[in-house]
């Protein structure tokens, strides 16, 4: 165990934990838009920056990546930290003026949009937090989506922006998206869902008869686990 101070509170944390993990366990909330417990941290959104003191020097670090250390003093709301956080949110608000989630977060943190930043007009709500891409690769294991281009032109898409052959329609990317960018539409009857431009036929639960998962997803799980598709055709509520 290591001892550290976060916002003047003495805290004990496990060695190897990140500052964010230690803070969260002690009820200290550090805002973030790109970290998720089932994913390795990426440090992309920069909202979770905090100020740490080592000796006489202080520096601004990413709390989702920075490991706790004995005697560390951390400030999660210092002026320097708030300057970065304000800029990050103002930049994201200008990038995705349509995102309700961002607006709410800014309101919570008392941050106003910067009037000098002309809002982007492409209606994208993607903040490039990378959670969808990482989930698709690391959690689902299919790599159906990825990034393309770089810098301001970077975006998340399927290869060649065409229907992805490897997508299984699981929708994990849409569930994890924090800004409401990835859209997944399901028909009224629930027999089909559309995501990333492709429509997937849904399978019914053999117990309750409700549509519950795309056929492609069950086939994929079956291939991975060796369990026959028919045995997988039971929804979570009936299992």
């Amino acid at each position: 165990m290591v001892n550290l101070t976060i916002d003047n509170r003495k805290i004990e944390a496990e060695a190897g934990q990140t500052i964010m993990e230690a803070a969260r366990e002690n009820g200290i909330v550090i805002p973030t838009l790109c970290s998720h417990e089932s994913l390795e941290p990426s440090g992309a959104c920069r909202l979770c920056v905090v100020e740490v003191e080592h000796g006489k020097r202080t520096s601004v670090v990413t709390s989702c990546l920075y490991p706790v250390a004995e005697g560390l003093t951390v400030k999660t709301k210092s002026e320097r930290v708030m300057d970065v956080r304000r800029l990050v949110l103002q930049l994201l608000l200008a990038r995705c003026p349509e995102s309700q989630q961002l607006k709410e977060m800014a309101e919570d943190l008392g941050i106003e949009p910067e009037p000098r930043f002309t809002p982007d007009k492409d209606n994208s709500k993607c903040i490039l937090c990378r959670m969808c891409v990482r989930t698709c690769e690391k959690v689902v294991g299919v790599c159906a989506i990825g990034f393309s281009y770089r810098g301001a032109e970077k975006n998340v898409c399927t290869p060649f922006k065409e229907d992805s052959v490897s997508c299984i329609g699981c929708g994990a990317c849409a569930y994890v998206c924090p800004s409401g960018h990835i859209e997944m539409e399901t028909t009224e009857s629930g027999d089909a869902r559309t995501i990333w431009g492709r429509t997937f036929k849904m399978k019914t639960c053999k117990v309750c008869g409700r549509y519950f998962a795309p056929e492609d997803q069950l086939v994929y799980i079956s291939q991975k686990t060796g369990v026959p598709v028919e045995d997988l055709a039971v929804c979570t509520s009936c299992r």
């Binding site: 990426s42 440090g43 992309a44 959104c45 920069r46 970065v84 800029l87 990050v88 930049l91 994201l92 200008a94 990038r95 000098r116 930043f117 002309t118 903040i127 490039l128 990378r130 990034f147 281009y149 770089r150 810098g151 301001a152 032109e153 970077k154």
Partner: peptide, 22 residues
């Protein structure tokens, strides 16, 4: 720098292009 930013983090990707616009 706008065209060479990798685009991973917000301040560099979004901030530098706003500076360029100004």
């Amino acid at each position: 720098l706008v065209s060479e930013s990798c685009g991973k983090c917000v301040p560099c990707r979004e901030g530098v292009r706003r500076m360029r616009d100004i």
